[in-house]
Nucleic acid binder design. Structure first.
Length: 721
DNA sequence: AGACAGCAACTTTTT
DNA sequence: GTTGCTGTCT
C-alpha cells in the first residue's frame, strides 16, 4: 500500500493531520468535517507508511459504537485485522487494564463492574444501614455527589471533615460506600477510570511498560473528557509528546456530567510542541445551514474559533414554524414528514430532535395516528431492562455466591415467598458477622431460625442456585443463559404478567440467549477469565446498543444530546422556547447557557439538506399551560436565513428578529377574516372575527349548517380549507 | 403478595 | 399530566 491510497481522498487540512511527523496534535474538527476519517486514516498512515506496529497504537473513544466503527474502518482501509490494536472506550480499556493488573490495582481477581442502577441500589441499602434520612440526602443526589468526586479524582480521604452537617454526611456515605465496594469487590463506572489512573500512577513499572507500549495515543471527542480521563492520558503520554486528539469545543455538551472543555485549552499548555489543525470544510450541510450555525455559535465567548464552510450551494432557507401549542407543532412536523414521504423519500431521512424526552410523546401520538413508523432513541437500553438484569443476577449469583446485590435482586424474584421479615433477619446477621447475605442465609437455615414456610422457600432457592452452578460447567454460555431463564422461573413469571409488557419481557429474555450466543469470547480475553464472567462484564459495560431492531424505514426521534455524531437529510428541531431550550435551569448561568447554545449548534449541524425549527406559543408542561417566549437562539440566527412557514399556503417571509414583540396568532394571519375552515362537528364555516392571544385566542365562525359559534382556538380542531 | 392510593418530582446520558 | 416510588390495605 502506498501513500496515495491513504491520503488521496483527503482535503489539505485532513491530509496535513494524517501525515504529520509524529508528535502531539490537536485537530479542531468542526461538525461534519470528517474527524473520524482523520483518525482512521492517521492510524492507517502510522501502520502502513511509518511501519508502526498496531501494538503500539492506542485509540480511545467514549462509546462502544464509536470504538467499533473505528476498528471496522481501520480494518477496511488496511485490509488487516486490527485485533491487536487497543481500540476502545475509556471504560472498556480501564476495565481491561484492571483485569490484567488486578493485583497492582488491589482488586480481587473476581471484581465485578456495576452499572449506575446497581450503584444506586447499593447506596440506598448502605444509607438504610447507616440510618441516613433519605429525604435530606436523596440517594440520587448522593450518587451524583460520589461520582462527581471520583470524576475529579477525589477520594473520600482527600475530603476535609466539614462542620456543615449536610456535607459531612455526604462524606461519611462516600467513605462507607468505598469500604463496601472494596469489601465486596465492586467497581462502578467512575471507579474504573479513577482506579485505572491510580494504578498506573502508583506503579512505576507498569507505567513504564504502557508508556513504552503505547507510542501513539489517539482520542476521539476530546472535548468530552473529564478530569480523570485527561489525567490518565497525560500519565500515559508524559514526556512522550505523542497524544493525538480530535475534538470540537463547540460541540461540548456534557459539561453537566463532568466533561471539561478546559481540557482542550490545557492540552495546548501541556503539549507545547503540539500542532493545531482546524478542519473547517464541512461535507454535510448546505451553505445556509452552516451560515446560521456559525452565526449562532459565534455568540459564545472563549471559543477556540472555527468557521464551517462548504463548497456546495446555499440550499434552502431554514424554515421556522410558530405553532400555537405543542399539538399544533407536532401536527405541523408530521404533516411535513408525510409530504416528504409522499414524494417518495425515506422516513429514515427525517429526525425530530428535542431538548427533553418528555417532548417525544406529542410527536409519537401524531405519528401513530397517521400510521407513520417511527423509532424513539434513548430510554432503557437492552442490558438495563429489569428482566435482563434479573437474569444476569442469577448468573452472577451462581458464579459468585457472595454477591449481595445479585442476591438482593433475585432472592424473591420470581416471588417465592421470601418476605421482608426473612430478608431483614438475613441482612442483620450478614452485617453483624460481616459476611455475605448468602452465607448469612445458610447459617440461619442451619440454626433453624426460620418458620417452615420461609425455610422451604429458601431451601428451594439454594437448591436452584446450586443446581444451576453445578450444571454450568458442562454447558455452552448460551445454554447456561437458557438454562437460567427457564429453571429460575423468570420466563413463567413474566408470562403471567398482564398486558404486552410481559410478552416483551419474555422476548427480551429470549434475546439474551441470542446475545450470549453471539458473544465473542476472545474479543476481550487475554487472561483466563471464565467466559461467563466476561459476558457479565460485557453486559455492564456495553448497554446493548439499541438492539439491531427491525430494519423498517422509520422516522427518528431523539434528544439533541443523542443526536450528536449523527446526520439526517431533514431535521426538525422543535420546542425552541425560553425555559425549554435553553432550559430553565440553564438561563441564569452563562456557562450553562453557552452549553445550551452549543447543543443548539449540534442540533442544527445535524441537518444535511433541510432544517426546520419550530416553537409553540403555548405549551402544556407538567399539567400547566405556559406561554413561553421564543428561544433567544432564534434571534441569534440571521433573519435573512430564515423563512417563516405557514401551513396554509407556504407563504414565506423573513422573520422579524431582535424584537420583543412576537407575532401573535391572531395577527399572524393564520386565521384571517374570511378564512374558510372546517370543524369536526360543525362542518364548514367562515371566520368572521378573531380576538385574544395565545391560548386565549378565540375566533367567531359562521358555520353553514351549525350557525354562528365562538371557538377557542386552543381547543377547537379547525382545518384550514 | 398483589393491588391501589397518595405523594413528590420533573433536563440532558454513556459507561 | 405523568411516572415511579412508598406505604397501606385485602
Amino acid at each position: 500500500m502506498e501513500v496515495a491510497a491513504i491520503i488521496d481522498s483527503l482535503n489539505d487540512a485532513q491530509r496535513e493531520a494524517v501525515s504529520a511527523p509524529s508528535r502531539s496534535m490537536l485537530v479542531l474538527a468542526g461538525a461534519g468535517s470528517g474527524k473520524t476519517r482523520v483518525l482512521v486514516h492517521r492510524i492507517a498512515w502510522l501502520i502502513k507508511i511509518e511501519h508502526i506496529s498496531p501494538l503500539n497504537i492506542l485509540a480511545v473513544t467514549f462509546t462502544n459504537k464509536a470504538a467499533k466503527e473505528m476498528r471496522g474502518r481501520v480494518e477496511d482501509l488496511l485490509n488487516i485485522s486490527a485485533r491487536s490494536m487497543w481500540i476502545g472506550t475509556f471504560h472498556g480499556l480501564a476495565h481491561r487494564l484492571l483485569r490484567q493488573h488486578n493485583k497492582e490495582a488491589k482488586l480481587p481477581d473476581t471484581f465485578q463492574v456495576i452499572d449506575s442502577d446497581d450503584q444506586l441500589r447499593l447506596i440506598k441499602r448502605l444509607m438504610k444501614a447507616m440510618n441516613v434520612d433519605d429525604n435530606r440526602w436523596p440517594p440520587k443526589q448522593v450518587v451524583w455527589y460520589i461520582n462527581a468526586q471520583k470524576d475529579e479524582g477525589i477520594r473520600a480521604k482527600h475530603i476535609q471533615e466539614s462542620s456543615d452537617v449536610y456535607q459531612q454526611q455526604l462524606l461519611l456515605i462516600y467513605r462507607g460506600y468505598e469500604d463496601l465496594c472494596a469489601r465486596s469487590g465492586l467497581v462502578d463506572f467512575a471507579e474504573l477510570l479513577l482506579k485505572a489512573h491510580e494504578t498506573l500512577r502508583d506503579n512505576a513499572e507498569l507505567l513504564e511498560f504502557y508508556r513504552a507500549r503505547f507510542k501513539y495515543v489517539h482520542v476521539d471527542e476530546f472535548q468530552d473528557t473529564n478530569t480523570v480521563q485527561y489525567a490518565w492520558l497525560r500519565l500515559l503520554t508524559e514526556g512522550q509528546d505523542n497524544l493525538f486528539v480530535v475534538g470540537d469545543d463547540d460541540q461540548s455538551i456534557y459539561g453537566w456530567r463532568g466533561a471539561k472543555i478546559e481540557n482542550m485549552f490545557n492540552f495546548q499548555k501541556h503539549y507545547p510542541n503540539h500542532k493545531l489543525i482546524r478542519l473547517e470544510q464541512n461535507y454535510r450541510s448546505t451553505g445556509n445551514i452552516l451560515k446560521a450555525s456559525n452565526a449562532l455559535i459565534a455568540c459564545n465567548d472563549g471559543r477556540m474559533g472555527k468557521e464551517l464552510r462548504t463548497d456546495d450551494g446555499d440550499g434552502d432557507l431554514i424554515s421556522l414554524y410558530s405553532a400555537f401549542n405543542e399539538q399544533d407543532e407536532a401536527y405541523f412536523v408530521v404533516e411535513r414528514i408525510r409530504k416528504w414521504v409522499a414524494e417518495g423519500n425515506l422516513r429514515s431521512d427525517v429526525a425530530i430532535l428535542y431538548r427533553s424526552n418528555a417532548q417525544s410523546r406529542q410527536f409519537e401520538e401524531k405519528l401513530m395516528a397517521t400510521g407513520t413508523p417511527y423509532r424513539v432513541y434513548g430510554g432503557l437500553r437492552f442490558f438495563d431492562r429489569m428482566e435482563i438484569k434479573n437474569a444476569l443476577a442469577y448468573l452472577f449469583l451462581m458464579m459468585h455466591k457472595d454477591n449481595d446485590s445479585a442476591f438482593e435482586r433475585i432472592i424473591n424474584t420470581p416471588t417465592r415467598g421470601v418476605g421482608t421479615k426473612t430478608l431483614d433477619d438475613i441482612r442483620r446477621l450478614a452485617r453483624e458477622k460481616q459476611i455475605s447475605l448468602w452465607l448469612a442465609m445458610l447459617e440461619l437455615m442451619k440454626a433453624g431460625h426460620f418458620t417452615p414456610r420461609a425455610e422451604n422457600a429458601l431451601k428451594g432457592f439454594v437448591l436452584l442456585i446450586n443446581n444451576l452452578s453445578k450444571q454450568s460447567g458442562e454447558l455452552e454460555l448460551y445454554e447456561q443463559v437458557k438454562n437460567v431463564i427457564e429453571k429460575s422461573g423468570l420466563i413463567e413469571f413474566h408470562k403471567k404478567e398482564k398486558g404486552d409488557k410481559g410478552e416483551a419481557r419474555v422476548e427480551n429474555l429470549e434475546e439474551l440467549v441470542n446475545a450470549a450466543r453471539q458473544f465473542d469470547y476472545d474479543e476481550d480475553n487475554e487472561e483466563n477469565f471464565s467466559e461467563l464472567d466476561l459476558f457479565l462484564a460485557h453486559a455492564a459495560l456495553e448497554s446493548g446498543d439499541a438492539q439491531a431492531d427491525d430494519f423498517e424505514d422509520c422516522v427518528q426521534l431523539m434528544t439533541l444530546h443523542s443526536a450528536k455524531g449523527l446526520e439526517f437529510p431533514i431535521v426538525f428541531m422543535v420546542g425552541l422556547e425560553e425555559g425549554l431550550f435553553p432550559s430553565r435551569q440553564s438561563v441564569d448561568d452563562i456557562g450553562r447557557l453557552e452549553e445550551e447554545r452549543r447543543l443548539c449548534y449540534v442540533g442544527m449541524t445535524r441537518a444535511m439538506k433541510m432544517l426546520y425549527i419550530s416553537y409553540a406559543e403555548s405549551r402544556r408542561l407538567y399539567g400547566k399551560e405556559n406561554y413561553p417566549r421564543p428561544s433567544r437562539f432564534l434571534k441569534e440566527i440571521p433573519s435573512e436565513l430564515l423563512q417563516e412557514i405557514r401551513l396554509r399556503a407556504n407563504v414565506s417571509k423573513p422573520v422579524a428578529t431582535n424584537k420583543q414583540t412576537k407575532m401573535t396568532i391572531g395577527t399572524s394571519g393564520r386565521y384571517q377574516l374570511g378564512q374558510r375552515v372546517r370543524h369536526v362537528k360543525f362542518g364548514e364555516g367562515v371566520v368572521l372575527q378573531v380576538e385574544g392571544e395565545g391560548a386565549q385566542e378565540r375566533v367567531q365562525i359562521n358555520f353553514a349548517n351549525a350557525g354562528m359559534k365562538w371557538l377557542m382556538l386552543s381547543y377547537a380542531k379547525l382545518e384550514i380549507l
